[in-house]
């Protein structure tokens, strides 16, 4: 379980927690049914207030990512595959759109963009600079 917060960041701490847990759930690092650290335990470990962790877990529950079971703790929810796919599709689309925007600014022709996409796919899609 990995949560790292930055005090000086402009992003509120509870938001940082939400983002990191959400990312871990969506990427599969946190499997459905996993018990998350208790609200109070997390507050103590991160040296922040209980209200902050309470709020983070509450918002995560609202988003359907976790479920708080009275007396037991907070568990990761199984995600709807269709919903997950929908979210992932949107992420891919956003990434592609960003690439096209950049190409437009740099006046790179669509044909070149297609070539780059093909070669990246051929390389297995693991080629990160």
């Amino acid at each position: 379980m990995r949560i790292v917060i930055q005090n000086r960041s402009q992003l509120p701490i509870y938001q940082q927690i939400i983002d990191q847990i959400q990312a871990a759930i969506l990427s599969g690092d946190l499997q459905p049914g996993t018990l998350l650290p208790s609200i109070r335990g997390l507050a103590k470990d991160l040296q922040i207030s209980v209200i902050t962790t309470t709020r983070a877990y509450h918002d995560l529950e609202q988003a359907g990512l976790v479920q708080n079971v009275q007396g037991k703790g907070t568990y990761v929810q199984a995600q709807d595959p269709a919903l997950l796919r929908e979210q992932t599709l949107r992420q891919v689309e956003a990434g592609l759109q960003a690439a096209l925007d950049a190409a437009k600014i740099g006046q790179i022709p669509p044909a070149t963009v297609h070539e780059m996409l093909d070669s990246l796919i051929a390389a297995g899609g693991d080629d990160h600079d």
Partner: peptide, 13 residues
């Protein structure tokens, strides 16, 4: 406390 930056971190209220 006067050391309010510390406090802002872990104080609930």
């Amino acid at each position: 406390s006067h050391l309010t930056d510390d406090l802002a971190q872990f104080a609930d209220y």
